[in-house]
Write a protein that binds this DNA or RNA. Structure first.
Length: 260
DNA sequence: AATCCAATCAACCGCCATCTT
DNA sequence: TAAGATGGCGGTTGATTGGAT
């Protein structure tokens, strides 16, 4: 008797998430907290695998996520931690609040690894490469490091401190991605929250400021439509989430606020 | 303008660890 | 203790983007 798959492969939607799906997932978690992922899609009305829901939440919808490229400090920390921990991305991510293991893993593979190689450092062992021409040209590398692959990084840093939150490419999905100047003071409540979650600077400071004063959204007057709805998020930042009635607290382990 | 190609990153897959019964 | 259920992790893939030609 084998293990059951985490979900039926048939009838389960795959691929990029739509704004509608995000909305459903956010809505569900807002009202019920994070309960067992296997049940989430059914209860939330999603044709997704529970695993997929968890991943979407963890890597993209979670309110405490930082967006944009890793700072130089963060990058150095990742390198240091990788030297100690190896490819333990979740452990590394736990040391970088607001960053996900997936994000760090991607950044490592696309940026840091190349930089290290160019610098003549073995990205696996963190020791100098044996036959490294690169090692001899290390000085030039530090100047040029990343001229190729990191040009975009530098540009994006210059242009706006960090890269814009990637937008869904499907035009039907873009509806919920606010353009600058979007008037957040009108429209469906949940949609606003989705907009906020999707596009805003979601550092914890922003969340706290936001929850405390609503100042993050300059053009909002009066109480926001989801006032009070985010209390649980603050709870879960500090104490691990799942204050909600229907949720089994024992399943929640958000101990350090970065590892949910 | 069209095509190619490398870079990027969201999402999936399979496996493992832990929990529950 | 065994077996199943669930969550989480790390590796990999594939769609998309944007620069180069």
């Amino acid at each position: 008797m084998g293990r059951q798959p985490c979900c039926d492969k048939q009838g389960v939607k795959r691929g990029p998430w739509t704004a509608e799906e995000d909305k459903k997932l956010i809505s569900f978690i807002l009202t019920h907290g994070r309960c067992c992922w296997r049940a989430v899609p059914k209860l939330a009305g999603l044709l997704r695998c529970g695993k997929s829901c968890r991943l979407r939440w963890t890597n993209y919808l979670r309110p405490d996520l930082k967006r944009g490229l890793l700072s130089a400090d963060e990058e150095q920390l990742v390198i240091d931690l990788h030297a100690k921990l190896g490819n333990r991305w979740s452990k590394i991510a736990a040391k970088l609040p607001g960053r996900t293991d997936n994000e760090i893993k991607n950044h490592w593979n696309t940026h840091i690894k190349k930089k290290l190689v160019k610098m003549g450092i073995d990205p696996v062992t963190h020791q100098p490469l044996a036959n490294s021409k690169a090692a001899s040209s290390q000085s030039t590398v530090t100047d040029e490091s990343a001229k190729s692959s990191d040009t975009r990084d530098e540009l994006s840093l210059k242009e706006g401190s960090h890269r814009e939150v990637p937008r869904p490419t499907d035009s039907s999905e873009q509806s919920s991605w606010p353009e600058s100047g979007t008037n957040i003071g009108s429209g469906d409540d949940l949609e606003l929250l989705v907009d906020w979650l999707s596009g805003a600077d979601l550092s914890i400071e922003a969340w706290l400021n936001f929850a405390g004063s609503n100042n993050e959204l300059g053009n909002v007057e009066g109480p926001l439509p989801w006032d009070g709805m985010t209390d649980w998020l603050l709870d879960y930042q500090d104490f691990g989430m799942c204050s909600s009635n229907s949720v089994n607290d024992s399943t929640i382990q958000g101990s350090n606020g970065s590892n949910f």
